[in-house]
């Protein structure tokens, strides 16, 4: 997967636009999930961040891939407005930092670890990590983009019966059981975007 290093700017711009479009389309759904167990702002926050990212798509996509990922992550950090900003932003910034020196799967694994460190969280706490770790393992196992999207969807579904022990939902204790984690759902949406894009369907 080191060919990632040669992705041209137009393709990066396409991916940013596809991500923006998906986050806009799913904003209400994400906010509804978040209103069940959080503070009802996840969809709006992600929409704002990806709209800001798309507004800078020209400058960002002109950079080499690693730098583009770092700039995209910083843009999310500065514009999302909730904890999702530093979490998704740190993911992209670490991915950008590691992508030239590692395989894509290796860089992805480091990015997931950086999210765990940023959120002081671990697997099994009903957070986005419950999708990112299975995704990371599937990537290391050489799964196709479409298979990765399925892995992500199943992993997010598996957050439904979990009790939240990290993040705002943890305030609810047992009442967090029975709802999908919104951050996990965002990871599924974005994995779907990347899978479609990688297979030329974006």
């Amino acid at each position: 997967m080191t060919a990632e290093g040669q992705i041209d700017g137009d393709r990066i711009a396409e991916l940013i636009e596809a991500a923006r479009s998906a986050m806009v389309a799913h904003a209400e759904e994400l906010t509804a999930l978040d209103s069940a167990i959080g503070d009802a702002d996840h969809g709006l926050n992600m929409k704002r961040g990806f709209e800001a990212l798309a507004a800078d798509a020209g400058a960002i996509s002109a950079k080499p891939l690693g730098e583009a990922l770092k700039a995209a992550g910083m843009k999310l950090v500065m514009t999302v407005g909730g904890a999702s900003g530093p979490l998704f932003g740190t993911f992209l910034m670490t991915l950008g930092k590691e992508i030239d020196a590692n395989s894509f799967a290796g860089a992805f694994a480091k990015a997931v670890d950086s999210v765990a460190a940023r959120g002081k969280s671990e697997r099994g706490q009903k957070t986005m990590l419950d999708v990112l770790y299975p995704l990371s393992e599937a990537l290391a196992g050489g799964k196709s983009p479409r298979e990765l999207a399925d892995v992500a969807a199943a992993a997010a579904e598996a957050t439904v019966p979990l009790k939240a022990t990290r993040g705002r939902a943890s305030f609810l204790g047992d009442r967090s059981i029975g709802h999908m984690d919104p951050g996990s759902r965002s990871c599924v949406i974005l994995t779907g975007v990347v899978a479609d894009w990688a297979e030329g369907r974006a």
């Binding site: 702002d41 709006l44 926050n45 407005g81």
Partner: peptide
């Protein structure tokens, strides 16, 4: 938040 709503 950056848009003036509740957030940081």
């Amino acid at each position: 938040d950056p848009a003036g709503g509740l957030g940081t």
